[in-house]
């Protein structure tokens, strides 16, 4: 479904991603872990081209998205993204946040968009918050709205960039719960997170990144109980 080949990304002199080759299959949940500065977030942001890549290639559903002739907005329609800082639109209500893109990008009628948005809000357990502004929501609620907003575009793949890192501890659970359900429904997901419990429970595969490389990847149980690389062992000993 996603094929990444020899991906490189530099910011000026600083090379953040050095040589990333990985494939992600349909309905797979891939969790990326690693120390901060290891390039996990940058890697995720390359997949929907929020960052221009410096080398290599990314194919999504067979299309080379780094090809200049491809419409990047078309690609992004099929790749949803959830950010650490939520990035809800503060001047729009919860419902408007979710409806805006389907209406403006997919040209869906207002009635249909609203129906869809309410359904999604119910799914994330926030149907009673449809008409409030994001300001009045807790962090966990904001992130659930952000997930609903991304789902409204009916993406084939969802990217999660540390979705629980900006949350108070007691709100982490509600967001992870929504993500678990999504995984159960068969959504293809790439999740950058520090939640090892989630990685173990929901992940089909865990990738450990450090210094711009993929150091090790394996089934969660294998990677957590029987890591092979020195750096993986040292990282896991600090976080587990």
């Amino acid at each position: 479904m996603i094929e990444i080949n020899k991906l490189k990304k530099s910011f000026g002199e600083h090379e953040v991603l050095k040589d990333i080759t990985v494939q992600i299959n349909l309905q797979e949940v891939v969790v990326i872990i690693g120390p901060s500065g290891s390039g996990k977030s940058t890697f995720l942001r390359c997949i929907n081209l929020l960052e221009d890549i410096s080398g290599g290639s990314i194919h999504i559903q067979g299309k080379d998205i780094t090809d200049k002739s491809i419409n990047i907005n078309e690609v992004r329609k099929s790749v949803g993204m959830v950010f650490q800082q939520f990035n809800l639109f503060p001047h729009k209500t919860v419902l408007q946040n979710i409806m805006l893109s389907p209406m403006k990008v997919k040209k869906i009628s207002k009635e249909k968009a609203q129906e869809k948005a309410l359904k999604l809000l119910k799914k994330v357990g926030l149907e009673d918050k449809a008409n409030v502004y994001p300001d009045s929501l807790s962090g966990g609620q904001k992130q659930r709205v952000a997930i609903a907003r991304a789902l409204a575009m009916e993406p084939a793949i969802m990217l999660f960039d540390e979705p629980t890192s900006a949350l108070d501890p007691e709100m982490v659970g509600e967001v992870l719960e929504v993500m678990k359900n999504l995984a159960k429904e068969g959504m293809t997901m790439i999740v950058v997170t520090h939640e090892m419990g989630f990685a173990r429970e929901v992940g089909d595969r865990v990738i450990f990144m450090d210094g711009g490389y993929i150091i090790e990847e394996n089934k969660p149980v294998e990677l957590f109980t029987n890591p092979k690389e020195e750096r993986t062992i040292s990282f896991l000993s600090k976080v587990l």
């Binding site: 929907n48 907005n73 992004r76 329609k77 949803g80 990035n87 893109s101 403006k104 991304a150 575009m153």
Partner: peptide, 9 residues
């Protein structure tokens, strides 16, 4: 970034 990631131009 959020707007662009939702497919907006």
């Amino acid at each position: 970034e959020a707007a662009r990631s939702l497919g907006m131009t």
